[in-house]
Computed example of a mutant assay.
Amino acid sequence: MSKNIVDEYIDILQYYLEYYGLYHIDIKNLLNTSTDIVQDIKKGKNGPTLKKLGEIAQLFGLNYYEFGNPEFKVPEKENLPTLTQEKILWRAEVGPPQSKKYNKLDLNNAVIDALEAFKDMEKFLPSEVYDSLPQELKEKLGSTIRITGLFSDELSENVEKTGEKLDKGEVGRKQEYYKVISLEKGLKRKK
């Protein structure tokens, strides 16, 4: 019995990752996505659309039909897009990704630690706090939206809104400014 096309595509992608010394997280970062696209495809969570297949193939300087062809010659490193080359060099230097498990309290405390740098500021944006976090924690949180969510819930006793909003002239919800009111650690007490 032959493999289905998704399994075959994942096998090809896994071969490319191993060939270049990359990991799923590297693909996630190169695609600038908050989810592990490889795991999503494997689990059938988000089926492989042509757009996704094309984006992954472009990481290796290929069209989707070239990448999906097991007979197609793997490109030399020097022929890959610059960002992919840089990621390969970086990964070779730092080694395999180290996964640190964060529980909810650890996440909250890590954000409170980051707030230390903002304690004397009149105002700051959640995106500035997010940008100041270590990369592995940013990957765990996924986006600035999680920081804003923490500020509204578990860390509401640590920060408060200033009432000012960032107006970048864009459509959509404007970011709100916050200020630090406490650096005390611990989960918010339920009332």
Rank of each mutant, 00 (worst) to 15 (best):
I5M: 11
D7I: 08
I12Q: 14
I12W: 15
I12A: 14
Y16Q: 12
L17V: 08
E18Q: 12
Y20D: 10
L22D: 12
Y23P: 15
I25R: 12
K28E: 10
L30Y: 10
N32V: 14
N32W: 13
T33P: 11
T33Y: 15
S34W: 03
T35C: 14
D36C: 01
D36K: 00
I37F: 08
V38R: 09
I41P: 13
I41K: 11
K42L: 04
K43P: 04
K43D: 12
K43R: 08
K43A: 07
G44D: 07
K45S: 14
N46R: 13
P48M: 14
P48Q: 10
L50A: 04
E55M: 06
I56V: 13
Q58E: 07
Q58L: 03
L59M: 05
L59R: 03
L62N: 02
N63E: 02
Y64H: 07
E66M: 12
G68S: 12
N69L: 03
V74F: 11
V74I: 15
E76C: 09
E78W: 11
E78M: 09
N79A: 08
N79Y: 09
N79W: 07
N79D: 08
L80N: 08
L83Y: 10
L83G: 10
E86D: 15
K87N: 13
I88Y: 15
L89I: 08
W90L: 15
R91G: 10
E93V: 11
V94E: 06
V94R: 07
P96S: 15
P97A: 11
P97I: 10
S99K: 10
K100A: 15
N103Y: 06
N103R: 02
K104G: 05
K104T: 05
L105H: 07
D106V: 04
D106P: 06
D106N: 07
L107N: 07
N108R: 05
N108M: 05
N109W: 00
D113W: 00
L115T: 00
L115F: 00
A117H: 01
F118M: 01
K119H: 02
K119V: 02
F124N: 11
V129R: 05
V129W: 05
K138P: 04
K140C: 04
K140I: 05
G142H: 01
S143M: 02
I145C: 04
I145H: 08
T148F: 09
G149D: 02
L150T: 00
D153W: 04
E154L: 05
S156N: 03
E157I: 02
N158L: 02
V159K: 00
T162D: 06
T162H: 10
G163C: 07
G163L: 11
L166V: 09
L166Q: 09
D167C: 02
K168F: 15
E176N: 02
E176V: 03
E176F: 01
Y177H: 10
K179N: 01
V180E: 00
V180Q: 01
I181G: 01
L183H: 00
K185I: 05
R189T: 14
